[in-house]
Design a protein around this nucleic acid. Structure first.
Length: 402
DNA sequence: TCTGGGGTCCTAGGACCC
DNA sequence: TCTGGGGTCCTAGGACCC
């Protein structure tokens, strides 16, 4: 049976949400109507465009480009800071509305959801009716606009929501694929990024239709598994389900671009400790253990290096994870100026009762109690309420969000 | 010139086992 | 001088998404 899938995508999410919040707080200007962006802090070397208004887009400003470039394209550009607390608030408000239409719903990112409404269509209403209703309600009740894609699978719904913006509902039914999707440039296809684009173009594949009409096997031979995926996407094939299970994360990590390059290993270790605390705090909030610990660094020339280690016993102890990370850093570090440092835990598992009792030593228990106590304080008074002496500046460098 | 931070998934090579 | 083949796991790096 044909499925009824919707993809709901907030228009210029960070910028719209900032605009709505500002208006709520008495602002006179709606920043959606002027050339404006949400950007990182240039002084801290995180100056990229996170979101742009429609007027800013007309100047050729692109998401993820340096603010420095954006300002050259539009000298009177207005720049606003990001505020993830507010974003989460509006994201949740949107999600709550969408939950009224189905319980088969997947949060694909902070500003995108997939809905499977196949079994939830009220009598006499079509998938398109529901899409328009959602669009209207979100605008009226929350004050920002969304695009809604209506299609028989997730890929097509996502492609559809990406058509003309903002505040639009688009369908992409099977019969519409040749007219609505195949003429689009191949770069518009989900999963075709800046590395595969030139390779496809070299093969004479310039539109999605060009890819769709090639023999499947020839694309698989050239691109492997990835080739199979994009060939199927080009032909509108996607059997994946809307996944409403709150999935367990597969990895958790934190990283920072440092306001200035660091060449001193002790300083790097201090930052690494703050990152390890943040990551293990999140790991414990998920009630999970990690087996693999990895450290990444980026040099001032933008070269990236990473090393990882797998432990015999999974853990969520700040101490164990930090000590492991510190050893990895010392292996990795070759006295170059470092721009970014990050930590990441992998191979996450849920604790298993026998393992805990088998491997726990009194010392570990003591450590666990300490972690737990600090977690509770952070929970109660805010993450930054608890910091080690001398760690204040490091916390300031890192915007905590979770 | 300037280039974030959070993820997922894939690949290739090497270690190791039978 | 010749030196398997298949499988699994680990690691480093990279592509892509938002």
């Amino acid at each position: 049976m044909e499925r009824k899938i919707l993809h709901v995508d907030v228009n210029n999410a960070f910028l719209s949400w900032t605009a709505v919040e500002m208006l709520k707080n008495g602002a006179e200007v709606d920043i959606r109507t002027i050339p404006s962006i949400i950007g990182g802090d240039e002084e801290k070397r995180r100056g990229i465009v996170l979101a742009k208004s429609t007027p800013a887009k007309k100047y050729g400003i692109k998401t993820a480009e340096p603010i420095y470039f954006a300002k050259q394209k539009c000298p009177n550009l207005q720049i606003y800071k990001s505020d993830f607390k507010t974003y989460r608030k509006y994201s949740n408000a949107l999600y709550n509305i969408l939950c009224e239409y189905t319980n088969k719903i997947e949060r694909f990112s902070i500003d995108e959801c997939f809905l499977d409404i196949t079994s939830f269509l009220p009598n006499g209403k079509t998938d398109l009716d529901i899409a328009y209703e959602i669009s209207k309600r979100v605008k009226q009740e929350l004050g920002f606009t969304v695009n809604v894609g209506v299609a028989p699978n997730k890929l097509l719904a996502k492609m559809a929501s990406d058509f003309e913006k903002p505040d639009k509902v688009h369908t992409l039914y099977e019969a519409e694929i040749p007219t609505k999707m195949w003429p689009l440039p191949i770069s518009d296809l989900f999963m075709v990024g800046k590395k595969s684009l030139p390779k496809l173009e070299k093969l004479g594949i310039n539109t999605i239709g060009d890819l769709a009409s090639r023999p499947k096997q020839s694309i698989i031979n050239l691109f492997g598994k990835f080739g199979k995926t994009i060939w199927e996407y080009a032909n509108g094939i996607d059997l994946s389900e809307v996944n409403s299970e709150p999935e367990m994360p597969k990895c958790i990590g934190n990283s920072v671009t440092l306001p200035k390059d660091i060449t001193n290993i002790e300083k790097l270790e201090e930052v690494l400790l703050a990152l390890a605390e943040q990551t293990t705090y999140r790991l414990r909030k998920h009630n999970m253990l990690a087996s693999t610990i990895g450290v990444q660094i980026r040099t001032k020339e933008f070269k990236n290096y990473s090393h990882q280690k797998t432990l015999l016993t999974p853990t969520n102890s700040t101490k164990i994870i930090y000590e492991t990370a510190k050893n990895i850093l010392n292996e990795l570090y070759k006295n170059e100026p470092i721009r970014l440092i990050g930590i990441r835990v992998d191979k996450l598992t849920l604790p298993n009762v026998e393992q805990i009792s088998l491997f726990d030593t009194p010392k570990n228990e003591k450590q666990q109690k300490l972690d737990k106590t600090l977690d509770n304080l952070k929970e109660k008074y805010g993450y930054n309420s608890i910091t080690r002496a001398g760690q204040m500046q490091i916390d300031e460098m890192m915007d905590f969000k979770d």
